[in-house]
């Protein structure tokens, strides 16, 4: 309980700062926290909001599943072939730090303006960290594990499922945590640019209309959901560590 209290106080301080900012900013085009919460209530009762949210959720869900499966598979593949891993690592790190939004027009040209472009863009964001973490987990696996498995007479399948997978799991979960966050970012940026639905579109559209309460309400709700989901994965992560 005590370790939750501190962060809660910090969040409260953040809201206070926001309130102060609301009073300072000229003619208060910045809505107050209270106005934002009221707008949240309005949105939560609005079927259109739920339609947009489900669009985002759908794209995000598919992107997460595909990038998780793909990232783990690619990571294992690259990690097993030591040379392949060494060749790929700097390329992947470079791709990771590239502002992927630059490449979004290419994705749009290939996939068109529909939801598949946003899914692809989400995967572009989420795939790389998971691949990197999985690959490094395997490359850094203590050799003694494999040797112990060999001494115990395990087959290679048994070794993979009872020794290697459990050993790399903590790092895979860390990678997944990062991957899921970035997937969401990818989908949302995709919606903010050149889309006609989804929460990202809702934010840009509201911004164009000058409807700041909606912008903030949506952004804060997404932030809260993302924080909660991350907290859950983080707890899972910690429960696996001794």
């Amino acid at each position: 309980m005590r370790h939750i209290l501190g962060p809660l106080l910090v969040i409260l301080a953040g809201f206070l700062g926001w309130e102060v900012l609301h009073f300072v900013v000229a003619n208060s085009s910045l809505p107050s926290p209270f106005e934002t919460i009221v707008q949240m209530g309005v949105l939560l009762r609005d079927p259109d909001f739920w339609k947009q949210a489900s669009q985002t959720g759908y794209a995000f869900g598919i992107a997460v599943v595909l990038s998780t499966l793909g990232g783990i598979a690619l990571g294992i593949l690259l990690g097993m072939g030591r040379l392949a891993g060494q060749v790929a690592e700097p390329i992947l790190v470079n791709l990771y730090s590239l502002p992927k939004v630059t490449l979004y027009p290419v994705v749009l040209l290939i996939f068109g303006l529909g939801i598949s472009a946003r899914i692809a863009f989400g995967i572009m964001h989420g795939l790389i960290p998971l691949t990197l973490f999985t690959m490094n987990a395997i490359l850094q696996l203590k050799p003694v594990y494999r040797r112990s498995a060999a001494v115990m007479g395990l087959t290679s399948w048994q070794t993979a499922f009872t020794v290697i997978l459990p050993a790399i799991l903590p790092q895979v979960i860390t990678g997944a945590r990062l991957g899921v966050s970035l997937c969401l970012l990818g989908v949302l940026i995709g919606e903010m640019f050149a889309a006609r639905n989804g929460l990202g579109y809702m934010v840009t559209h509201a911004m164009e209309r000058g409807d700041m309460p909606t912008v903030l309400a949506v952004a804060v709700m997404i932030a809260a959901v993302a924080l909660a989901a991350n907290g859950l994965l983080l707890a899972l992560d910690r429960s696996r560590q001794p």
């Binding site: 990062l178 997404i222 932030a223």
Partner: peptide, 16 residues
């Protein structure tokens, strides 16, 4: 947990 939040959604706030 910071990087889990799509901070980018707050870009409109900074525009204001």
């Amino acid at each position: 947990s910071y990087y889990a939040v799509p901070t980018f959604m707050f870009y409109p706030v900074f525009i204001i």
